[in-house]
């Protein structure tokens, strides 16, 4: 494994000492050249997992190893500097994640400048190379983020992350703010770059069909827990966990005849609050198949079929 989280936890403490279990005991590794898709609904902890994995949040428990070495539980500025040329991230919001007062040139060059302690001017050729590689051009160098569309900004974000040639790229919902036709463009670009650079990708998203398109393995989170993990095609077409089954079945397909056959949604209620969780199955309250023990004992993630891990008492 290139990077591996074991029993990773991230809690946030609220006023009055109550705890938000954002990520609670998640073990997940990403191999070299592998793309792992991480899916879940809002509040499932998928973004928090991604950020805790690479040190943007301090860890509350568990550890992360990168090439076998344990990463710090709490990062210092020096730790980030050291890690930056190996691990990079692109963010969900292409509007909020680019400094509006910097030109595209300055934004993309910044990583190189800080790493190599070189002048802005000396990075020009490399910045132009990366601009072109993500489908923009040298004409864009002196422009500012507000002059670009969402899809173009996301391309700038990709160039900024990849110019230091990292090994691991965390993509935190990189397409959910984009239009359908632009989503396909960005996903295809990421796929091409991943292949040509031999990148490892953690692709975080809530759109299962897009994740299916890019990932080798798919991981599903619910309320801070990893509940299913396996090869993408297997999870997508033969989901084992009741939640994964309902999640995949809930997405309407662009096919009217198929939609007319659709049964009413089986899943009731909403994702509960992640504050002060009891030791029980996180999904028990909404699960149509829940049994008494689901409410008193938390299932662990275990291999139920070759390469397929599920956290459910019923399997």
């Amino acid at each position: 494994m290139l990077i591996e989280a074991t029993h990773l936890q991230k809690f946030f403490t609220l006023n009055g000492g109550r705890r938000v279990h954002a990520v609670d005991d998640v073990s997940l590794g990403i191999a070299e050249h592998e793309v792992v898709g991480l899916v879940g609904e809002s509040g499932s902890g998928k973004t928090t997992f991604g950020k805790t994995l690479i040190g943007l949040y301090d860890k509350s428990g568990g550890e992360v190893r990168y090439r076998g070495e344990v990463l710090p539980a709490r990062y210092t500025a020096a730790d980030f500097r050291q890690q930056a040329s190996e691990i990079q991230i692109i963010f969900q919001d292409p509007y909020g994640s680019l400094n509006p007062r910097m030109t595209i040139f300055e934004i993309i060059a910044e990583g190189l400048r800080l790493r190599d302690h070189c002048s802005l001017a000396s990075t020009r050729d490399k910045v132009v190379y990366w601009l072109e590689r993500v489908g923009l051009s040298a004409d864009h160098l002196s422009r500012y983020p507000h002059e670009f569309s969402g899809g173009q900004r996301q391309r700038v974000g990709i160039a900024r992350a990849l110019i230091v040639e990292p090994k691991l790229l965390v993509c935190d919902e990189p397409i959910s703010a984009l239009d359908v036709s632009v989503q396909a463009q960005v996903v295809q670009l990421l796929g091409e770059l991943q292949e040509s650079m031999g990148l490892s990708l953690l692709f975080i998203a809530h759109d299962l069909s897009m994740v299916r398109h890019v990932s080798d393995r798919m991981a599903v989170m619910y309320l801070g827990s990893l509940i299913e993990l396996g090869p993408t095609e297997a999870v997508y077409f033969r989901p084992l966990h009741p939640y994964t089954q309902l999640l995949i079945a809930s997405k309407p397909e662009p096919d009217p005849a198929h939609e007319r056959q659709r049964q009413d949604p089986l899943i009731k209620g909403e994702i509960p609050s992640p504050i002060d969780l009891k030791p029980r199955c996180r999904f028990a309250g909404r699960c149509p198949k829940a049994e008494p023990r689901c409410f008193v004992e938390r299932p662990v993630l275990r291999e139920v079929q070759p390469a397929r891990l599920v956290a459910c008492h019923l399997l």
Partner: peptide, 20 residues
């Protein structure tokens, strides 16, 4: 339609509408 990932077991390349 073509820019959407389909549901068929055969994974197909996403078709892209070029430009904006």
């Amino acid at each position: 339609r073509a820019a959407l990932p389909g549901n068929d077991p055969q994974k197909q390349r996403l078709q892209i509408i070029p430009g904006s």
